[in-house]
Design a protein around this nucleic acid. Sequence first.
DNA 1: CATGAATGAGGATTCATTCAT
DNA 2: TATGAATGAATCCTCATTCAT
Lengths: 223, 223, 223, 223
Amino acid sequence: MPAKKTKNGSLTPSAMRRQREREHRYQTILAAAEKLFATEGYHKSSMEQIANASEVSVGAVYFYFKNKEDLIIQLMDEIGYLLRSTLGTVFLKHGATMESFKMAGHVFFEDFCVNYPEKCAIIFRESAGQSQLVEKHRKDLFDKCTGDVLQAITEVAKNEGYTFKDKYSAEIIAVSIMGIYERVAYQYLFWQDQSKNLKPIGRDAVAFILGGVKNLFEEAPCT
Amino acid sequence: MPAKKTKNGSLTPSAMRRQREREHRYQTILAAAEKLFATEGYHKSSMEQIANASEVSVGAVYFYFKNKEDLIIQLMDEIGYLLRSTLGTVFLKHGATMESFKMAGHVFFEDFCVNYPEKCAIIFRESAGQSQLVEKHRKDLFDKCTGDVLQAITEVAKNEGYTFKDKYSAEIIAVSIMGIYERVAYQYLFWQDQSKNLKPIGRDAVAFILGGVKNLFEEAPCT
Amino acid sequence: MPAKKTKNGSLTPSAMRRQREREHRYQTILAAAEKLFATEGYHKSSMEQIANASEVSVGAVYFYFKNKEDLIIQLMDEIGYLLRSTLGTVFLKHGATMESFKMAGHVFFEDFCVNYPEKCAIIFRESAGQSQLVEKHRKDLFDKCTGDVLQAITEVAKNEGYTFKDKYSAEIIAVSIMGIYERVAYQYLFWQDQSKNLKPIGRDAVAFILGGVKNLFEEAPCT
Amino acid sequence: MPAKKTKNGSLTPSAMRRQREREHRYQTILAAAEKLFATEGYHKSSMEQIANASEVSVGAVYFYFKNKEDLIIQLMDEIGYLLRSTLGTVFLKHGATMESFKMAGHVFFEDFCVNYPEKCAIIFRESAGQSQLVEKHRKDLFDKCTGDVLQAITEVAKNEGYTFKDKYSAEIIAVSIMGIYERVAYQYLFWQDQSKNLKPIGRDAVAFILGGVKNLFEEAPCT
DNA sequence: CATGAATGAGGATTCATTCAT
DNA sequence: TATGAATGAATCCTCATTCAT
């Protein structure tokens, strides 16, 4: 959809407005879908409900998104991006240190989970067990996050002079951390509502993680 | 279903055979459903497919199970039972020690995951994000497992003279362990097929767990 | 099913007992069906429910009745017979007089409706709009009742020296009376529960009927 | 369903056309359902048959009607409205007199029954003994008709200086008239096909009614 | 005769997707 | 671009009926 342009290549003012409106609608629909998927469930939410909730027609939803699957995929991609930026920022600020791992954990539990429980529901619950394509994007999301952690932990190890127990260790650390993030969020966000106590809970989870990490370094004192 | 009985109260031979056949059919259907759900996905598997795979009529499936939901719930309950027995046996043999935690991890990764990848798919993937009732049973399953770990770790702490960092610690340990189990299984069973390498992978995961656990004990040397 | 007989042609004692039991079961099932049809509705009542309510197996129901349709047909036939005997008895006692018409009305509203509301539900509600065969039996039932009334009114006319307005009159009287019976019962038995007040209600209905009848006699004083 | 409007608040021409088409489809489906229900029976008519008969898809039927039950309910409501207008018009023209009662009867038997035998089948046969909701609408329909008659007879009584035998009389008159209407229609429309002779039949039925009514007036000469 | 498990056709309903306007 | 009516395949579930034991 090439936007109309003026002779010198810049966009017409009205084209710009339309561009903006378009982007706005896209986000509105996505937000409505996120809320519905998280509260009602992916399968229980019909395209019509999503359209109604976004205050557009069913056709409009199909204009912006290829199909229902595309909706959840876009959602996952955006959430994945947000999650990675959020955590990445921590490392940008504090460098590749064990301290950053602590901070990242706190940010995840105390900020991300608390502010975006619905986004957590999408990536940890609603996107599971759907079509192959969705599962592929889910894998991508987790792989990227795992990759980030992997990269960070590798750097930390290098910086702080550690080596890993074996070739799997770094990856297992990354996967385990993701597992803890996921299940603690699931447990205390969806099953109990302990969003109030996520601070001490997160603190303990982080402590668990740090212990686990250290134990996979070669010279780890605990065995 | 009161089975016909002989005068002395025992079952008629023919009644016993029917009882057996009945149980057999029940299990056959359940097995077919497990396989289909795990490979095709819960929603993609129709009741007709399940009936065909079990070589019975649709009506027969409904004779043994209230509805499709009931099928996955029974499946979850049986799998939950199997998982808990499997892990429980370890503790029965080795007592409430840190060693048992190691063993349990190995049994889970090297035995349970390898022998029952489809059961893992049911509890970790297909049962997520379904109806409220299914979610309730899923919570029950995880709660029970978490409870088992919680009880074990509490005992270990008592036996070995540890105290926990704070009131959440023991529960966080349990939840984190479940998270690691789940995600490591998911990663290396469904996303990569590393069932061959589950031994070293499991070993590292267990090491991570042990480090995490120790770190939530009061006098933990790692902080 | 010819029952076993002794040499002299009479029934074996055990054959007699079985005969009795058979009849008893038949009636038990019929009674259960009547109750279920009347309270739950013909379509909502499954053969299994009927079997359970009669405390026999589904197969047994099919032994005594050809199919579900047969159940309601037998029911209608029995109810039809009971209704006609009940009303016929009145005419046997009091002869073919206008007085008998009064009495019959009172018996219908005050006795039949009150004692057998479920039988009324079968013939006036549940049997309507079913299969052609059921409808045929329904027509038979009403035709017979109408025929009884027709015969009675014809006799009354002869006895009391009346002639009818035209060739339809006698039949219209009969049909109208059935219509009043039916709708008054329906209204005050199923829609309101005025079984307590069926006496004054029936009295008025009977008065209406008497007025109607007289008005279709040639020399009727009212026009 | 808010239709698009022009600035001055009136409907866009194309919106009006769509509105018309919509209404047309609705009526087409309803008409097809009426015919099918009346000829094949409510239960024997599947939604697919109704869709085919209306030359729309199954989905379209569900777009216009909530479910099958809704179809018969809408039908009953429309028929009820038609019946009441038809009879009401008589009273508007001729006032609350006994003459109007005569006329109404003739209109019902000679016009309504003859022109709309299928509508009669719906309200007198197919709607009986269905779900509770349908029964509720059926009661409503009859209650309204009874109410109309009740109101009319009360006015007639007042106008012509009659009083009723007792407190039930007026209502019993109304109910009885409905009963006669119903059963005479049922008998001569569905069971015999005497639509040709409905004139003399109706005449006698009306005579019966008039006699009945008079007999429930206090000073009625017949007792 | 009685049982009750098994059958499977039948039917209501849903909903993602399309497309004429 | 936006609309929303229309499509129809897909699927769950029911239940009258049968029949081997």
